[in-house]
Nucleic acid binder design. Structure first.
Ligand SMILES: [Zn+2]
Ligand SMILES: [Zn+2]
Ligand SMILES: [Zn+2]
Ligand SMILES: [Zn+2]
Lengths: 132, 132
DNA sequence: ATCAATTGCGTTATGCTATAACGTGTGGCA
DNA sequence: TGCCACACGTTATAGCATAACGCAATTGAT
């Protein structure tokens, strides 16, 4: 069940897993230069696979990537995911909610639209950065 | 009430309004070269203002822009907007739904997250491109 | 009228994000 | 053995976005 990763894929996943927040492809590249990475494609190819495996997510609104918060269930799709992204500290919270999923399904159905992938990203300020 | 636009802003808004689908900044630039546009910044500065005025929207998942489907109410915020984007024909449908808004509000509140801006983009296939 | 502040504008240069295209090497399998 | 699929490495290029400078027009006091 657990996907067997190549060396490059493991390195990229590790970088994302150990990062405080989301990383851009080029930031990952810089972090991995000591491990032999030289070119963006090495990163992008690994990212593509990890996305395909459902192990990481892409944050469209900031052109960057995060490790999935649910490392246990690495199936290709764990439903609609909503991300809360703090603009102060960069922290990302991954959220799942059947209500949202249901509501979006109704919206799409009303337009006779066949959904392939849904992006939900909430930009704002997390609890820590608000209370200060 | 209606925002007075500068020449550049009007040109960019017109380009988006008359376009079939979303346009990238550089596509807009090419369309406006005959009107004197020479550099990306001329487009980006106009886009920034039009976004601020609520007259256009940015589609994060494809780095492009669309005119708002509700040209009547140009206030700075017309609530949460969900976009259905057809991957075949590029058509974009702008949708609003109080249920989604409510549900997202609950989700954010649960994390004590203060929302500034919400992005919802549904990629898939529109009715026309499905029925064919 | 004059000064200062703001805003838009044009230009050049640069930086960040992503992919095309080509060739190599390896493992599985008919 | 020949073929195929896949990961990999490299170079080059394409596409998206902003920094920094200076100028001109507008506004709104003083
Ligand atoms: Zn996840
Ligand atoms: Zn924060
Ligand atoms: Zn709108
Ligand atoms: Zn379509």
């Amino acid at each position: 069940m657990a996907q067997q990763l190549t060396r490059n894929q493991s390195l990229v996943l590790d970088a994302l897993t150990h990062a405080e927040g989301p990383l851009s492809a080029y930031t990952i590249l810089d972090k991995l230069r000591d491990h032999g990475f030289r070119a963006p494609l090495q990163v992008y190819r690994a990212l593509d696979k990890l996305l395909e495996f459902g192990m990481i997510h892409r944050l469209e609104s900031m052109n960057s990537f995060v490790a999935c918060s649910h490392p246990d269930h690495h199936h290709h799709d764990h439903g609609v995911t909503a991300f809360a992204i703090c603009e102060d500290c960069g922290q990302v919270t991954e959220m799942h909610d059947a209500g949202i999923e249901e509501r979006l399904s109704v919206l799409a159905g009303r337009e006779h639209f066949k959904t392939e992938k849904t992006t939900i990203e909430i930009r704002g300020h997390c609890q820590n950065c608000t209370s200060g």
